Simulated scan of single mutants.
Amino acid sequence: MWIKWTAIIGVLIIVSFGIATTYGSYRWQLDTAELRAKLKSGQQIMKLNIYDPKEIEGLPAPVQRFFQTVLKDGQPIVAAVKLSQQGQFNLNELEDKWNPFTATQLVITQPLGFDWDARIQMAAGLNAFVHDTYLLGEGNLHASLLGLFTLANMPNTPELNQGELLRFFAEALWYPTALLPSQGVRWEAIDDNSARANLTDGATTVSGVFQFNADGTISTFRAEVRYRDKLTAMPWGGSFRDYTVRDGMLIPLEGEVGWEYPEGIRLYFKGKITEISYEFAA
């Protein structure tokens, strides 16, 4: 008899877990749809809709080479981006413990913002759901087990806003028209292979150094300061590769991101874009 009841209890646990998983995923999808509707509803009509090479005149030499390499004359300005990713995410700060993930992301360039919706596999059938968001000048990081049990919820603070704006800035290689001076980016010369870029959105200003390859593409981005929390700030950055033409723009499909410790960089993200589509300024 005990074998029978053990089997019944096991089935009930499996069924309950399946129901919880389905419900959590459904509820999370509703949250994603709401966030992205807010992003789209705030989208502004862009004053400039075509890239004019004249606007890069006077920029540092490696920056001019970059735009000449990744954009064609008359390239439409990117208004929004939808992309899918897959890769590995390291949730452990002390050692390498990589978990596979998949994600979708919506990016809006005016006013700038994004929502990254990820599933990080913690174990077979057990996912952490993550929203990493920058919306109307405010950042938010929300992680949940199965979409039901909150693991982390970091709301809008000046430090988080700075970190999320830095993420937008570094990822602009996927939508390179967002790095043009007409889109608010201010470039400063460093040397023949690097330049500093600055971006302000509302009350938040960020700055980072882009390093350029010999072919004109960007190899790395580094920010001297990104806040991990309200008290801890560290150097942060990423590297990019596998450049491919998408809708007339040369963009990297693969990248790695990490924090810079005194002993070296500890990566926490390794990802590849599997799909990307653009909405251009009308």
Score class of each variant (00 low, 15 high):
Lys4Tyr: 12
Thr6Lys: 13
Ile8Ser: 05
Ile14Asn: 00
Gly18Phe: 07
Thr22Ser: 12
Thr22Asn: 10
Tyr26Asp: 11
Arg27Cys: 01
Ala33Asn: 13
Arg36Ser: 07
Leu39His: 09
Leu39Met: 06
Ser41Cys: 05
Ile45Trp: 03
Ile45Lys: 15
Ile50Tyr: 10
Ile50Leu: 10
Glu57Ala: 15
Glu57Tyr: 02
Val63Asn: 09
Val63Cys: 05
Arg65Ala: 15
Arg65Tyr: 07
Leu71Ser: 10
Asn90Gly: 06
Lys97Arg: 14
Thr109Asn: 09
Pro111Gln: 11
Phe114Cys: 05
Trp116Asn: 00
Ala118Pro: 00
Arg119Ile: 01
Phe129Ala: 06
His131Ala: 04
Gly137Pro: 02
Glu138Ile: 00
His142Met: 09
Leu151Pro: 00
Asn153Cys: 01
Glu164Met: 07
Leu165Arg: 04
Phe168Val: 06
Ala170Lys: 03
Trp174Asn: 08
Pro176Leu: 05
Leu179Gly: 09
Ser182Leu: 12
Arg196Lys: 15
Gly202Met: 10
Gly202Trp: 09
Gly202Gln: 02
Thr204Gly: 08
Thr205Asp: 06
Ser207Asn: 10
Val209Tyr: 04
Ala214Lys: 14
Ser219Gly: 08
Arg222Pro: 05
Glu224Trp: 07
Lys230Ile: 10
Ala233Lys: 14
Arg241Ser: 13
Thr244Arg: 06
Thr244Pro: 03
Val257His: 08
Val257Glu: 12
Glu263Met: 01
Leu267Thr: 11
Phe269Pro: 02
Lys270His: 12
Thr274Lys: 02
Glu275Trp: 00
Glu275Arg: 09
Tyr278Phe: 14
Phe280Ala: 00
